[in-house]
């Protein structure tokens, strides 16, 4: 269901749980689907002994992809026009992530109503792991 500009107001927020107790296998699953087989995400021996991290960690793009589900569930299918993020902290196996889109502005471009959103995904400690924005076409 698409959003309506007339029913939206600045500050409206939509929150969704993205994942609970992120499994290492999901990280591997993302590696296989995306084609990013970086051992930092899939190879505990390499990541701990060579790279010097405490364990493998999620692709930033996995968190961006999971956050994308929160967005498309909110704005509707095929409605996004822009989506961008910064990866502010790593996501580790076992993390639980919640993501929020907050209405920043409702504007009009080329006769089409557009909602601008702030996007933030946090882990179980409240640390922001992804911070960004999105824009989507909305109905009048």
């Amino acid at each position: 269901m698409a959003l309506s500009a007339s029913k939206l107001k600045v500050g409206d927020a939509h929150t969704a749980r993205l994942v609970e107790d992120l499994k290492r296998t999901q990280i591997v699953q993302y590696a296989g689907a995306s084609g990013d087989y970086n051992p930092l995400h899939t190879d505990e021996v390499f990541t701990t002994k060579v790279a010097g991290y405490p364990s493998v960690f999620a692709h930033g793009m996995l968190t961006m992809g999971m956050t994308g589900k929160m967005l498309t569930d909110y704005v509707g299918d095929a409605r996004l026009t822009k989506y961008g993020v910064r990866f502010t902290n790593q996501v580790w196996p076992g993390d639980t992530l919640d993501s929020t889109a907050t209405v920043k502005a409702i504007t009009e471009r080329d006769g089409v109503k557009v909602v601008e959103l702030d996007v933030s995904t946090v882990n179980q400690n409240g640390v922001v792991v992804v911070s960004g924005y999105a824009e989507a076409r909305v109905d009048d």
Binding site: N38, P39, L40, A51, G52, G60, M61, R86
Partner: peptide
């Protein structure tokens, strides 16, 4: 990306 103090993904738009 990469290992041992190597590359990471910082932003994507």
């Amino acid at each position: 990306g990469g290992g041992g103090g190597g590359g990471l993904h910082a932003e994507q738009h």
